[in-house]
Simulated assay, not measured.
Amino acid sequence: MSADSLPLAVLQVLPMLETGGVERGTIEVAEALVRAGFRALVASAGGRLVPELAQLGAEHVALPLASKDPWVMWRNAARLAALIRDRRVAIVHARSRAPAWSALLAARRTGARWVTTYHGTYNEGFPLKRRYNAVMASGERVIAISRFIAEHVTARHGTDPARLRIIPRGVDPGRFDPTAVSGERIVRLARAWRLPDDAPVVLLPGRLTRWKGQEVLIEALARMARTDAVAVLAGDDQGRRGYRAGLEALAERLGLGPRVRIVGDCADMPAALMLADVAVSASIEPEAFGRVVVEAQAMGRPVVATAHGGAAETVSPGETGWLVPPGDAAALAAALDHALALDAAARAALGERARAAVLARYTTERMCAATLEVYRELL
């Protein structure tokens, strides 16, 4: 089959295909592309999700796109341009800054259409950083993953609203379905985490980093009226051993050692959420979207989140969860006590409302359909 007779291709570029929301979204869109009759290509430096991509019928191209070395980025641009020409790529979709600079050059050289997804607020710690970040606002279409991010892009970069498309992240309601999680999976996690029988479980999923608010949760645990709750911090420390040690020391200092579990990465998040009596997003800086909050609501779990960023859009206070000021351990403690005091009927009603809200607005199907509609606009 000649290149001219092949279906049109969309190339997504990102640093690596390890774990995380950006990576998962890339896989989900690639799958939707294949189902819709496109060819789906993903270029990255590789990672544990590459085999999954291949199983979906998409193609992975290994390039050193995690590098921020200017010479490597320049060479990546040439490699991507050759790939675009060779594989008849119609659209290039960048999901991270360093690969985006290479991909932008390649798109300009080849005439491929150009899409970016603005996934975060991106700090500006030194003078040239805003210019470096601006590549994510350069797309012919700029996808913002929340209203919060859309407003940030407009304010920070002066992006024309006509180029912006708000497409919230989504969860798979089949995977995040409380009726689909077996008791065996829940028991397996409870044993692995050495949880005491009948103790209420407060779960904070997220990599171990200060801005995710693990310290705030530990301090809140010490302030709660409920003294038997156990906090589970589920996330990879990604080499931040000093921060992990600090969390352990804080728990010991507050007399909470036996009530704080730092369990590392969790491969079965639906089961973890079913094990939880309440899920927490305690981020002290705004989440661009906050996928954990939506995953918890999809599982019908009570959720407490900080009242900024994407979480302020995905939680209806008192209806699908609670919002508290960022960094406020006392307010978080009060909200957790309130959530744990709900009777069975109130918990069930809140869970039903939360799951219904997710099914209406925040599914992978809706996210992927909206993303493919962006591609079709440009084609």
Results as ranks from 00 to 15, higher is better:
S102W: 03
R185L: 07
D160C: 08
S283Q: 07
L189Q: 04
V187A: 15
A137V: 12
A333C: 12
V280S: 04
E352G: 14
S283P: 08
G174H: 13
R87W: 05
L17N: 07
A36I: 06
R141D: 12
A137F: 10
L105M: 14
L164F: 01
V61Q: 10
G46H: 02
R165G: 03
V50C: 13
E52L: 13
D69S: 11
D228F: 06
N76R: 03
A272E: 11
P7Y: 04
D237V: 08
L83M: 09
E377G: 04
G310T: 10
V216I: 13
A245P: 09
V61G: 03
A137K: 04
A279Q: 05
G120P: 02
G139Y: 02
Y362E: 06
L8Y: 11
R131H: 12
A103R: 00
E124H: 01
P7I: 10
T19N: 12
P196F: 07
C368E: 09
A62E: 15
L340I: 08
R240T: 03
S96Q: 12
A180V: 00
A3P: 10
V115S: 10
L250R: 13
E313A: 04
H119C: 06
A360W: 00
A40P: 07
A298I: 10
V171C: 11
R347K: 12
A199V: 02
R113E: 12
R79E: 15
N123E: 15
P270T: 07
T159D: 00
I145K: 02
S146H: 08
V315F: 11
E23Q: 14
Y122A: 03
V72T: 15
F126P: 01
